[in-house]
Structures are given as C-alpha cells and as structure tokens.
Design a binder for these strands. Sequence first.
DNA 1: CATTATGGTTTGTAACACAAACCAGTTGGC
DNA 2: GCCAACTGGTTTGTGTTACAAACCATAATG
Lengths: 108, 108
Amino acid sequence: MPEPFEELAELDRLVHEPARLAILTALSACRTADFLYLQRLTGLSKGNLSSHLAKLEAAELVRIEKEFVGKMPSTHLSLTRRGRAAIERHWKELDDLRRRALDWQPAT
Amino acid sequence: MPEPFEELAELDRLVHEPARLAILTALSACRTADFLYLQRLTGLSKGNLSSHLAKLEAAELVRIEKEFVGKMPSTHLSLTRRGRAAIERHWKELDDLRRRALDWQPAT
DNA sequence: CATTATGGTTTGTAACACAAACCAGTTGGC
DNA sequence: GCCAACTGGTTTGTGTTACAAACCATAATG
C-alpha cells in the first residue's frame, strides 16, 4: 500500500478545486439545475460559474444545454455519467485517504 | 442552515490545496519530520515542498526549525497548534459538508 | 582538487481563479 | 415608439499560484 499522503498530493485538481467541488456536488444532489439556480446554490459569481462550467464541460464531466423557456434563454446543466462517477469517486477517495492517514504508522 | 454547496465553494484554499493537504495531514500523523522524510511521504519535488512549507509557515500553520545534525543541515518540521487545529477542522468540515450534501433536499 | 552527494532555496513560467466589463434580447414606463 | 432597466449569461483583464528547473553552499569521495 502506497502512502496516503502521496495520493493526497496527487488529487485531481479539476474536481478538487472548491468552486468545482461545489458545482459537481450540487449537480449530484440536484440531478438537474439551470444556471441561475446553480449560482444561488453555490454562491459563485456569474463569470466565475460560467468559466468553471466551461472547464467541466471540456472535461466532459458536465453537460450544458442552452434552451429557451418561453422567450428567455435558460442554460440547463447536468452531470454526465463520467461526471457523476468522478464526483462520487472523489468523495470516496477523500474519505478513504483520511482514514488511512489516521491509521498510518511510521513503520513503513 | 446555509447551503452546503456554498460552503464548499468557500473552502480555505491554503489548507485544501492537494500538496498542502498532504503536508499538513502527514505532519499531523507524524507529529515530527525532517524535510527529506516529508518529501518521501508526500512525493513532492524539493522545490515544490519548500515553497509550500514557506507558505504554511507564513500562515503560522507549520514550524520550520533548521538544525545541524553532525555537520549536515536538517530542517525539522512540525505543526503549530493553529496548524493542527486547521487540518483537523478541515477534514471535519469536508466530512460534514459531504453528509449535508447527501441529505440535501431541493425544498429550500 | 575535481567530482559527486546532501539539503535545500530561488527563479521563471504557464495555468488559474476571479470579478469587472460587456453583450444580446426583453420587459416596463411614459 | 423609445429609453431605461432587467435577465441570462460570456469574454476580457489581471494578480496569484503551483510547479520544476536551475541554482547554491557545504561535505564526503576518489
């Protein structure tokens, strides 16, 4: 078993970064959200949310669908299958690494 | 109760960043380490470890003591009281936020 | 007295997070 | 009809950051 600390240092920053962790976790809980609702949930500024979403879409973790509701635009957001797997795996990995760090003994 | 997602987005990046999370968690498990031992535990490059430590020292989370063992220099590292509190709090906060996100219902 | 090893620090740079400025369409006041 | 203000975002500009490569000082080695 490799050191848990080494794995901590290698955590995927695409998912781990606070704003994106919030976005992915929120979408995981919501299953569906539009842009402004997600903005309220996460407390991010519009610009910031927009660019994080673009990054997550480029990595194929989030699906961005622009629709019109009546005549107003509305951007519909959801996790891709990869996105859902990634956020679930990340939380499990954090939990796992924390436990392993607590159990860890210098004797390696 | 505020949204857990908003708090996720506001996580303290000083502690949350993967390399520093590894450093603080390792020092928390070790209670004591020298520079090279910590480098092996975390797998970080020397330069990277050095600059992260400098940042943690500036924030008074880590204590850096340069000694001589025989004639060779050796940098002794440990958490300050604030550092220990910060890393423990951070892990608890992550755990707490994850649970709240899982329990979360759209009805707010 | 070169060379190599030890134990780090400093420097350079590409990427990043963020808010401010912007933009296109829409509704409301008059 | 026309100007203002609002909605729903995107693009731009900028200071910060994470990282490795280059560097530095001292010490043991051939």
